[in-house]
């Protein structure tokens, strides 16, 4: 069973210019990365979040400056939705001057203010639980983004158990895109995420919408409860990964990729307000082009020179 059907309809609520900018900044940033890889300009690997951009954008408005955000291997969108600094992120990915982490961390290992990503699946949840233990009672929370594949890791269950026992403000955001690298959910997950959360007595909320405003309105009281009770919460988004797992390693059948593309928010957001969308889309595309040109021309980052 792949439970990733997002409704194929236009957003009911008009998205703000700010949200549209954020969505399209991430979209064009990720596209640029794949282009740079094709050109042989980038080293290593990268994991784009094409199709999933609306999730961190929706959440960004629900998070406070004193919240901790834990991200994963597919974390560019998580970062850009919280810190719109494409120069610093691209410099990190390209190992150029001005890199967020001096070029040491690269795509998967970013630590900037209260944003931290790591490249090992499930590893962040116990750490986030420890941070949440410290934050409990302050009104701040720890938010950890994980995927459907992450639920194969034992660390997830050890952390959920403690988070529930100790009632810590931990918000677990699951980007369930139906595929773990190349393995579909049906081949890697028995039962459901909802039932797993229920087993720990943890509240679970399923989001099928990709309407930023609708998502926020549904989540706002739940996220507030995470802070005030405090208590953990699992929010599961049914979403789609449009691109490959990393770069050019998509083994899904063409019809499945087509289905994923058909549920992309991009076209529907464009239809909802064509003129404004086109304007901001062009603006963000050009912004990313400038960022690429500027950062590519910078000298290599040196250790100790982190921004």
């Amino acid at each position: 069973m792949i439970v990733t059907a997002a409704p194929a309809r236009s957003p009911r609520h008009l998205v703000t210019d700010g949200d549209l900018r954020s969505l399209l900044l991430i979209r064009h940033f990720e596209r640029a990365l794949l282009r740079l890889f094709e050109q042989g300009v980038l080293s290593g690997t990268t994991h784009t979040c094409l199709g999933q951009e609306y999730i961190p954008v929706a959440l960004s408005a629900l998070l406070r400056d004193d919240d901790f955000v834990f991200s994963n291997h597919r974390g560019h969108g998580h970062f850009l939705a919280r810190h719109p600094d494409p120069h610093g992120l691209l410099a990190e990915i390209m190992g150029r001057e001005g890199a967020l982490c001096g070029g040491v961390g690269g795509s998967q290992h970013i630590y900037h203010r209260r944003f931290l990503s790591t490249g090992v699946q499930g590893e962040s949840l116990p750490v986030a639980t420890g941070v949440a233990l410290k934050l409990a009672g302050t009104g701040a929370l720890a938010c950890a983004y994980i995927g459907d594949g992450t639920w194969g890791e034992g660390a997830v269950y050890e952390a959920l158990n403690m988070a529930s026992l100790w009632r810590v403000p931990l918000l677990v955001v699951v980007e369930h895109n139906g595929i773990a690298q190349s393995t579909p959910t049906s081949a890697q997950m028995a039962g459901t995420i909802a039932a797993r959360a229920a087993a720990f007595g943890i509240r679970h909320h399923h989001v099928a919408s990709d309407d930023v405003d609708e998502i926020r309105r549904a989540l706002a009281p739940l996220v507030d409860a995470v802070r005030t009770e405090p208590s953990p919460l699992v929010v599961e988004f049914a979403t789609h990964r449009l691109g490959p797992h990393s770069k050019g390693d998509d083994t899904r059948p063409p019809e499945e990729i087509r289905r994923a593309r058909e549920s992309d928010w991009y076209d529907r957001y464009a239809e909802a307000d064509p003129e404004r969308f086109a304007r901001i889309d062009a603006e963000q595309r050009e912004l990313v082009e400038r960022v690429v040109a500027e950062v590519s021309a910078r000298p290599h980052a040196r250790p100790g020179g982190a921004a």
Binding site: F68, L116, E123, L125, P126, V127, A128, T129, G130, V131, A132, L133, K134, L135, A142, A155, E158, A159, N161, M162
Partner: peptide
């Protein structure tokens, strides 16, 4: 997870 929670407290 105990080690991870410890690291989280340290990080915070």
């Amino acid at each position: 997870a105990i080690a991870g929670v410890g690291a989280g407290l340290a990080l915070a």
